[in-house]
Design a binder for these strands. Sequence first.
DNA 1: CTTGGATTAGACTGTACAGTCTAATCAGCC
DNA 2: GGCTGATTAGACTGTACAGTCTAATCCAAG
Lengths: 207, 207
Amino acid sequence: MSLMTEPVSFDSRQRLIRAAAEAFMEEGYRASIDRIAVRAGVARQTVYNHFPSKDDLFSEVARVAAGAILVSLDGDGIDLRARLLRFGAVLRQRLIGDEGLAMFRILSAEVPRFPALGVAYFDKGPGQVVRWLADFLGRAMNDGLLRRDDPQFVAELLLSMLECFDRTRRLFGAPLPAASGEAERVARIIDCFLRAYAPEHDPRNLS
Amino acid sequence: MSLMTEPVSFDSRQRLIRAAAEAFMEEGYRASIDRIAVRAGVARQTVYNHFPSKDDLFSEVARVAAGAILVSLDGDGIDLRARLLRFGAVLRQRLIGDEGLAMFRILSAEVPRFPALGVAYFDKGPGQVVRWLADFLGRAMNDGLLRRDDPQFVAELLLSMLECFDRTRRLFGAPLPAASGEAERVARIIDCFLRAYAPEHDPRNLS
DNA sequence: CTTGGATTAGACTGTACAGTCTAATCAGCC
DNA sequence: GGCTGATTAGACTGTACAGTCTAATCCAAG
């Protein structure tokens, strides 16, 4: 998590942001400027040289964090299921990994005091993932690989399926369901999704 | 916010808990004992007559909140789809309604400081809903109304589908997808679920 | 009326913190 | 060397707050 010590004051700004992120993730907004400064190996005044206030530092941390949850859908040449499996596995790391979880905690808690920040974060982070996924799924529908439906809705549905209650569980510190490894869980979810969105070719269809 | 003035000191404990819940939902853990007391129409010392510390008051609020998110699956006599629709609609009120959202925000943020509380909340609230739903779905599987699978997994999957990214969206203050009313959204989700979990060979359970 | 438990306002303590200010120091660069 | 801008430690201010204490007051039940 922490970078090895670089030449002090190479770029204290980056180290500050990183240290602040860690501190906020551990302590929430309670993390004091002093502790953040110590963590960054920097004087308190230096913090204020870079950021006018704690709120500004926090906003900067959130901005960086938004980029950190992006998951691409790269993977030409492999089939739909394999691509979704890969996507799902990475997405779940982002959603229920320690770092993503901690960021989610503090951001969702503080958003009421930073409304604009909340929207911006959503838009550059989770919202962006939805857009990419919707785009991807829309193309798969056009290729006849998936049942036709509103891609945005389907993307959101798939994302929540992948989350599969595990984020809630982990947020409250409840143990994850004993069973089977991550990979298997992702596979079960994706297969369930593909069953629901199989192309309509076969005789019976509802709609 | 305030209930009509009851005979003062009828049961200041209940009024305190309610006031504290409102204050915590608005301000997070920042809500001060003083403001909570004012809100309850009570002296600060009275708060300490009932709860040894702010943390204890907070824990009590969380305990009450856990019970408030429960959703039953009552509804004998109507078919599976109708029951799920009803369940889904109520569940979504709990998940993405203002109150549930605010509680989720503060609880998930504070859980790291109250690990036992987090687990207890999960167990009496969300965890209980999962158990009920798993039980219900398990019975539907036995009745041949649903494809056979691990009921716990399916319950969790259905819950996350119902949440459908809307909680995340609302947590960050992003607008809900313009489209169609709640009822239609629930129906789309439930129908998608029923498609994925139609009995394997004889799909005969939609209205 | 009297008594006892709950309640009240308000003063008080100690702590944590954001943010400012200053004077000294360090770094690279001419 | 000497200049410049960033950095440093530490003192300082003002505020918010949890929690305690006290002395007065209310209220219900005997």
